[in-house]
């Protein structure tokens, strides 16, 4: 079968995954705007926009805890599938081929390609760093000075890494890869999309559904 049946809808993310993803996305968005307000007095207008500095000082840590919890739940669901296989390692060395649409030069990807897997691990690492350093900054009167001094630099540093990788993620999920947003909003993809972007995953789905 060369041409996949365009009528078939292949389930990609179930409701649980979609809800987790968007809870993480919304809390990340809130924490980013309020965090940028605290990052520089020049961006303090964002605090005004979000309810005022006094308010966001209270809400940012709680939303951050929410984000970390959701990330933990997502990691439980996805961590196993995010291990890099032999194809992924080759893929990573040819990332520039991916960026220039030279897909013929890339080994086939599974449910997630190596770039998505790296984003997952990067997000997990920065979330952990943000959570630990953020917890220290939350209670300045109780935390030892040495930890506070470390956290006041580690927190924004981890945030820079986190925000930058999410910017790439948003670009990939919207403009760069058409129809991928449908997978995260409605939960399914079309066969042609799956065949092109995730050949090994598509093959496994076909084998298990005898189509």
């Amino acid at each position: 079968m060369t041409n996949p049946n365009p009528e078939i809808r292949i389930p990609r993310f179930d409701a649980y995954e979609r809800v987790m993803h968007w809870m993480a996305a919304l809390s990340f968005f809130y924490a980013t705007l309020t965090g940028l307000a605290l990052w520089s007095p020049k961006l303090y207008w964002m605090a005004t926009m979000m309810g005022g500095g006094y308010h966001i000082r209270g809400s940012h840590p709680w939303v951050g805890v929410g984000f970390a919890v959701v990330m933990g739940v997502m990691a439980r669901r996805w961590a196993n599938g995010m291990r890099l296989d032999a194809d992924d390692r080759i893929w990573l060395t040819r990332m520039h081929k991916y960026a220039t649409h030279d897909h013929a030069a890339l080994p086939p990807s599974g449910r997630f390609n190596a770039g998505q897997k790296m984003l997952f691990w990067a997000q997990l690492a920065t979330t952990l760093a943000l959570f630990v350093s953020g917890f220290v900054l939350w209670f300045p009167e109780w935390m030892p000075r040495s930890l506070r001094l470390l956290s006041i630099a580690a927190h924004p540093l981890a945030a820079i890494g986190s925000i930058t990788s999410i910017l790439v993620h948003v670009y990939m999920g919207t403009a760069a890869v058409p129809h991928s947003m449908r997978a995260m909003l409605r939960g399914y993809v079309l066969p042609e999309w799956a065949r092109f972007h995730h050949p090994k995953w598509y093959k496994a789905w076909r084998a298990s559904h005898h189509v």
């Binding site: 897909h103 013929a104 790439v168 050949p199 076909r206």
Partner: peptide, 29 residues
């Protein structure tokens, strides 16, 4: 750098398109 990089990547290379950038070794073949 990331915002402008993404924007100009789109301007230069455009979106990924299965019709144009087909995978010669796709399992379906």
């Amino acid at each position: 750098g990331t915002v402008l990089g993404a924007f100009f990547h789109f301007v230069i290379y455009g979106p990924q398109d299965p019709e144009k950038h087909g995978h010669p070794e796709e399992p379906s073949d």
